[in-house]
Write a protein that binds this DNA or RNA. Structure first.
Lengths: 268, 268
DNA sequence: GTGAAAACAAGAGCACTGATCTCGAATTTG
DNA sequence: CAAATTCGAGATCAGTGCTCTTGTTTTCAC
């Protein structure tokens, strides 16, 4: 997600003081002060998320948040050193919310061997989440907001969706349901596919399949973003059919076989 | 810069009064005042675009623009009723710049029958333009900036890229170089494909091909956006190979045949 | 030409914003 | 209990988009 290793350094969420880390993450908020701090932090984020959902990142105002919470604006800086840090915290939360939703959608498919149904579920979950929280989606996948350097802490949560997508493909492959497309790859791409395969903790996965899944990944977010940001208006605008069709087309591109007949059929 | 004849219309730049339209669009700036107005408008946009390229839409400040131009900030409102209107003007210009670049890249392929080469050229032009003006790309395809309602005047310029993509496909089809993929489409999608086909002024085009081109269109922008916004970092980050490979894969998905041997070969 | 009408630039001002600093009050820690 | 730390509030600063008023300049019709 971000190329610079030290990213924000001391400027990410939370107070910069290394502070009372001695207890470790045993249970939340030992002292009353710590508990109050955690609660207030959560409350700030909740109110900020509310404003974000209302008017987008542009309309998120520290002063408005503090006003709504009945505190001075300056007090907010004890919890988030800057507006961007608050935004970063919201970004991480949003990545995690989306990731959790997607993973849940995958898990909800009872038949773990119905790979195409799982693929549908994962893709559909992305679209549904985006439709439900358009501003948060825009925060994650739209233009980077400030000058911005994506903090290190976001790359983990951000990877959950591609992990879910690749998880389905890996399962299909290890189940023997996938054929090697036998694509010829450029050397650079071959190496990158190898790195991805390694990150997936899987013995082997045809590199052509890896790349095709990458194509489907970028396609999915391109399509969802276009729908959400109005670029499909006038042509593919009610995008339900286009989306459903495309998800199948991408599954076919990867090579996911049709599900057994008792699996949930494609919508409509 | 702008292609639409009356350019801004009543709602964007310019005073709201219908004013001196009697002369018609014969030649730019008849009276001295009109000429000065046109020049200043262009100068404002130029300076605004400069600031945009520097710090993104977030960093575009009316006051800074006026300061740089040596005028009072209030005077700027005679030319653009609001900051969003200035942004809208920049958006339209950017769409046109991108569209012109893409169309030029297509035209630059001498052999009009080398459809795959033209496809490569068009896709590559999108990526190159995006890399060259990341902030303007973000303005067009990132999160909608204000509360925002895409003004009517943007849809024309915005359509130039998909038109260029479809143009290649239509040419390939009319040249008999394309096979009907014979995709089964949902009724809604079938209707939308018919609408698109109608908008293309082409007698017939297999609806499956239309939809596949739509898939490639969304994939292209998803991939370019992901690269530009850093979502490929750590995996497919130097995206040249991935991009080249994917462009070919999408051309294959549509059914564009390989070019004749004397045509420019795929890069690398 | 001349006088009315329209367009214009500038300045003051409003209601905001993010951010910093200082100063008492509360709380945790030794 | 005392010292150290954390905390909240107020004042303040520089900056923003935008509006309104005032006086000047240009244009247009007679």
């Amino acid at each position: 997600m971000d190329a610079v290793p030290h990213s924000t350094g001391p400027s990410s969420a939370g107070p910069k003081s290394a502070g009372p880390e001695r207890t470790g993450p045993k249970h939340a908020g030992r002292t009353a002060r710590e508990r109050a701090r955690a609660e207030l932090t959560a409350e700030i984020k909740r109110e900020a998320r509310r404003q974000l959902s209302d008017q987008g990142a542009q309309g998120l105002s520290l002063r408005a948040v503090s006003r709504e919470l009945g505190m001075a604006s300056s007090a907010l800086y004890r919890y988030f050193p800057s507006r961007d840090d608050l935004l970063t915290a919201l970004i991480i939360d949003a990545y995690d919310a989306l990731g959790a939703r997607v993973e849940a959608a995958d898990r909800a498919v009872a038949d773990r061997g119905a790979h195409r149904a799982r693929w549908r579920a994962v893709c559909g979950a992305v679209r549904e989440w985006a439709a439900g929280q358009p501003h948060e989606y825009a925060l994650l996948y739209g233009s980077p907001v400030p000058g911005y350097i994506a903090p290190e802490a976001t790359i983990g949560p951000a990877a959950r969706v591609p992990f879910a997508l690749f998880g389905v493909v890996v399962d299909a492959w290890t189940a023997g349901a996938l054929a090697d497309p036998g694509d010829a790859l450029l050397p650079e791409l071959e190496m990158q596919a190898a790195i991805i395969t390694g990150a997936l903790n899987v013995i082997e996965l045809p590199h052509g399949t890896v790349v095709r899944t990458g194509i489907a990944w970028t396609q999915l977010f391109g399509m969802v973003g276009f729908e959400l940001f109005g670029h499909l208006a006038g042509t593919l605008d009610p995008a339900d059919a286009f989306f459903a069709h495309t998800v199948e087309a991408m599954a076919t591109l990867i090579g996911l076989p049709a599900d057994p007949p008792d699996a949930p059929a494609p919508p409509a």
